[in-house]
Design a protein around this nucleic acid. Structure first.
Lengths: 337, 337
DNA sequence: GTGCCGTGTGGAAACGTTTCCACATTCTTC
DNA sequence: GAAGAATGTGGAAACGTTTCCACACGGCAC
């Protein structure tokens, strides 16, 4: 429990070098006037003593850390990983460092509360700005730079990065229509999120505009997870008249559908067509037709936006939209009536 | 640049509740004597004002954060991602939170220096303990709890988690021997790391003990990356007498070999057998025969070890070894002389 | 009734920085 | 050659906490 650490401080360095603390600080941060000679001597002492800045003390005082915080529910989720890629690419360009906070699992009992808590903690403490992925908590203190990826339905205002979910799903369903499918199952996402709502709306509109009836039994709620996809997949495929195609609101759920289909003896695409959303890397291996929302790009753009926010040039767009594209692979087949 | 944030502090709360700061602190941390009535009142004020603790100030003073730090060169690398999975699983069990520091890319010019710097920064600043993945920097201040995954060759002492690299490679090469391969290419890893050294040693010993000559032209240095695997793969397959099999020191490099083989018209496994190391998730899709070092487990065990270190029960083992297992898939075929 | 312990509270020191201010010294410039 | 700018330096306040210490009050034992 106890931590006996007694590390080298700036004061130790100052004493050893025979200068004031402010001089050492100037050397470390390379700002203000310091003579070449003094700089040299202080640098040597720093090396000798193995001095390392205390981030806490520093950020407490200076309000500048060159650190961007990323808050995610689950570092294990492919969507999150892909997003991290983009953020990572951006921070390298910007010469920032990245600090990721996670409490490990979206399903952890007090997950939301903790996330919410950590937004303010990270923000007011340690990072210059924060990116929130999947903002499930519907309320957090409006402390300075925050960009969210996806949006909470109760806070549908920026700054945020979000895909054109509506168009993406419309395109996907039109694709299934063209292949002749009419009985299409829908496995939803989290309805606290804009993405979940928009995707569902698009699905419903597609049917309406095509003049086709919506079958309630084919539209099931989900939550963007493998297990929900699996459960709902089992339900749909166990119906007396199962759908000929299933649209899963993300690829994780689509994976669950694959699992369910395989267990119930449905072959994909022969007996069942499947479309997902996200285009996670695995989708390519699975041959899954899906809506690419360019997740890596979302992370990249979000970070760039945050950077502008930190620099206080207000970002030109409050909400940045990423265009989706339908990626057709082998998981869908024409259906003959 | 400037941060205008002026957040609610413990002092504001104290004033609003008409008590001293120490009382507020006692309420927040639930320690020491506070009357039921005062506790109530302070709690209300905290909610009203939307007060959030300043992590920096807190950890600066109290040295306890319930946060475990993870320091990684590259959140984009499959090995690192898999490791994160295990760490994530452990922190949920332990009811800790996780903070991941990364500077985005192992190849970033000053990567090592920064990593090294951040070990001490994170450690002395914000987290109760730190896990270092791929300790490339060969020296860092011996500040309190640190567990490393893999080992730097210049600091071959624990606490650390490392796979039985030697046995793993021996098994892999024996497998290739049994299939009749004698001309086996070797693409190495980073020789600053124990894993890189041990794998190479095992490769050499396998040949020696089998009484077979080692061909220098078939043993190339690498660095555990896709691009190195690709480059070295091209070199090996462009030899007058190319190898019939290639052992890549990790799966990323093996992926590079796949790329090189495909470009030069070598079919796997017909014209070339390939073995990797790590067993990253993609390996299953690729049909890559590889040595599983149970990376998720490494992360999990490392975190558990770190936890014991924080609690100051010295961990029973200084270095925890993870047993590797050979996973045979379709990337290798018998070779007839 | 004096002393001591348990409970409840507030003030102030300490943590390790950065930054503001004050003070020297040297270099320009008219 | 005097004024003012540029350069170089150190002291001390400030950041928001936790924790140590002091104090006050009531009750209980002797």
């Amino acid at each position: 429990m106890a931590r006996t650490r007694r590390s080298v401080t700036i004061i130790d360095v100052a004493k050893a070098a025979g200068v004031g603390v402010s001089t050492v600080s100037r050397v470390i941060n390379n700002k203000g006037y310091v003579s070449e000679e003094t700089h040299q001597r202080v640098s040597e002492v720093i090396d000798d003593l193995g001095y390392a800045q205390n981030l806490a003390a520093r950020s407490m005082r200076s309000q500048q850390t060159n650190l961007i915080g990323l808050i995610m529910p689950d570092v294990t989720d492919p969507f999150c990983i892909e997003l991290m890629r983009g953020v990572s690419r951006a921070i390298i360009e910007l010469d920032y460092d990245l600090i990721i906070y996670t409490n490990g699992d979206i399903r952890r009992n007090d997950s939301n509360t903790r996330m919410q808590q950590y937004v303010s903690i990270l923000n007011s403490s340690v990072a210059d700005g924060v990116i929130i992925v999947i903002p499930l908590a519907d309320d957090f203190p409006p402390v300075s730079p925050v960009v969210s990826i996806d949006l909470n339905i109760n806070h549908p205002s920026g700054p945020a990065v979000i895909a054109t979910n509506y168009q993406g799903v419309r395109e996907a369903i039109d694709h299934l229509f063209e292949l002749g499918h009419r009985r299409i199952g829908y496995i939803g996402g989290r309805m606290e999120l804009m993405s979940g709502v928009q995707r569902q709306k698009a699905f419903e509109d597609a049917f309406k505009e095509a003049g086709l009836p919506l079958d309630d039994r084919l539209m099931l709620p989900g939550e963007f997870t493998f297990s929900a996809g699996y459960q709902r997949g089992l339900e749909l495929l166990s119906l007396d008249e199962p759908p000929t195609a299933i649209f899963a609101s993300n690829d994780q759920a689509a994976k669950g559908v694959y699992q369910a289909a395989s267990e119930l003896g449905f072959r994909i695409p022969d007996d069942l067509s499947v479309v997902g959303f996200d285009n996670i890397p695995e989708a390519a291996y699975m041959g899954l037709t899906t809506v690419d929302q360019h997740v890596e790009q979302m992370g990249y753009m979000g970070t760039k936006m945050l950077y502008r926010l930190i620099q206080e040039d207000d970002p030109e767009e409050d909400i940045y939209q990423i265009e989706t594209t339908l990626v057709v692979r082998g998981s869908c087949q024409p259906f003959d009536h």
